[in-house]
Amino acid sequence: MDNRWTDQVVGERMTVDKEFTQDVLNSEFTNQEWDLIMSAVEFEIENPDSPEEARIVANTEKVATIVPELDDINAQMQAMGGAPGGGSRNRGNGGGIVDSVKSALGMGGGDGDGDPDQERIEAASELAARYGEELQEHLESKGRWAEICAVAARSPAADEN
């Protein structure tokens, strides 16, 4: 995928990253987990030919592939006694070693219809979508949105939309 427009917004991304820090802190993810999630997310502009209708969307198809690494980070943080650097770690009721063992053995812990990996993927996707919205709002406020849409419309990736 060719997203030349993303090369044009590096400085804006850094600003949005700083502004988005509180959103990450309020999420279930640590800063380290969020960095990993962002490495798996690709941002695309839908309808770049029309800046009024164009939207930044987060392509999160690859997030599922990094869930084992998220789990490793989570295990490391718990071994160190918490989740420094952000993330509430509040993943619902229960927790702890007994619930983990029960879950691993397929013995419940909750209503049984929620896949923890799928829930984390959805949470990561929602947070990435919010990030994309904030990036677009930032670009619009700086008067760069039409320019960025024009770059995206010229890129070969726009032919796929």
Rank of each mutant, 00 (worst) to 15 (best):
M1N: 08
D2Y: 09
W5F: 15
W5I: 00
T6Q: 09
T6Y: 06
D7T: 04
Q8D: 09
Q8T: 02
V9A: 05
V9L: 08
T15D: 12
T15C: 01
K18R: 14
K18F: 08
F20N: 03
F20S: 04
Q22I: 11
D23E: 13
V24C: 00
S27K: 00
E28K: 06
F29L: 06
N31D: 10
W34M: 03
W34Y: 11
D35T: 11
D35Q: 15
A40L: 08
V41D: 01
V41Y: 02
E46T: 12
E46Q: 10
P48M: 05
P48D: 04
D49C: 02
S50V: 07
S50W: 01
P51W: 07
E52Y: 05
A54F: 03
A54I: 08
A58L: 07
T60S: 08
V63F: 05
A64K: 15
T65L: 14
T65M: 12
T65I: 02
E69D: 15
E69L: 11
L70T: 03
D71V: 05
D71P: 00
D72Q: 15
N74I: 02
M77F: 10
Q78R: 14
Q78L: 15
G81P: 06
P84R: 02
P84I: 05
G87Y: 01
S88Y: 01
N90W: 02
N90D: 13
G92R: 07
N93A: 14
N93S: 10
N93R: 13
G94R: 11
I97N: 09
S100F: 09
G106V: 05
G109H: 06
G109L: 08
G110S: 09
G110Y: 09
G112I: 10
G112E: 12
D117C: 03
Q118R: 11
I121L: 07
I121N: 04
E122V: 12
E122L: 12
A123W: 02
A129L: 06
E133Y: 06
E133C: 00
E134G: 04
Q136Y: 06
E137G: 11
H138L: 01
L139R: 03
L139K: 04
E140I: 15
S141R: 13
G143A: 11
G143S: 08
A146C: 05
A150K: 14
A150F: 03
A152E: 01
A153T: 00
A158W: 00
E160P: 00
E160R: 13
